[in-house]
């Protein structure tokens, strides 16, 4: 939507593997643009001040808070959201483990949690429960109490090592 008097910038980026051009309000953060500009509503907005992790997306290969980066800063970057990570199959083992273990309830935190867990498993294929808990401590889940999430990440790690 063109907004009156709103300063904008044109950006070009790779979004979930696809080359995209867009005009974004300068003050719009990345997750708001992904959700409302690019129509990718799988990334969620939970706090807008960098605490909850619901907005996690991957930018140039690392997981970042989508509310703490401007959309204009994604110019030239490769951005991957839960939608892209799903269709590439990159996080399939984690997704299966989360599903089977009921490691989500309302599911609002889940996309961010999955991306963060995937980053952990890339770095550490056999994390302990404590290591999983620490790695996910920037992702709030208000429903599960985390135990099932830790189980699921362990199960996914085991299946990936097998």
């Amino acid at each position: 939507m063109e907004l009156p008097d709103e300063p904008t910038a044109d950006i070009a980026l790779t979004l979930n593997g696809e080359a995209i051009r867009a005009r974004v309000p300068l003050r719009q953060n990345l997750v708001d643009w992904l959700r409302h500009g690019a129509g990718l509503t799988g990334s969620h907005v939970g706090c807008e001040h960098g605490v909850c992790g619901a907005c996690h997306v991957q930018v140039d290969g690392v997981v970042v808070r989508g509310c703490l980066m401007l959309a204009v800063q994604a110019d030239g970057a490769a951005v991957e959201t839960i939608e892209g990570a799903t269709s590439s199959g990159r996080i399939r083992a984690l997704q299966d483990a989360f599903f089977n273990r009921a490691a989500l309830q309302c599911g609002f935190c889940t996309p961010g949690m999955l991306l963060q867990a995937a980053e952990l498993l890339e770095r550490n294929p056999d994390p302990s429960r404590a290591e999983i808990r620490e790695a996910l401590s920037g992702n709030y889940c208000r429903c599960t109490g985390y135990h099932a999430i830790v189980d699921a990440v362990q199960a996914a790690a085991a299946s990936l090592r097998a």
Partner: peptide, 26 residues
């Protein structure tokens, strides 16, 4: 100056910081 933005961005979102210009050094 906008570097990592991990403290500045929350303050912008909260309108506790209101710079006229962000200089992105990334």
């Amino acid at each position: 100056v906008l570097a990592g933005g991990q403290s500045l961005m929350p303050m912008l979102n909260l309108r506790m910081a209101r710079p006229g210009m962000l200089v992105d050094i990334n």
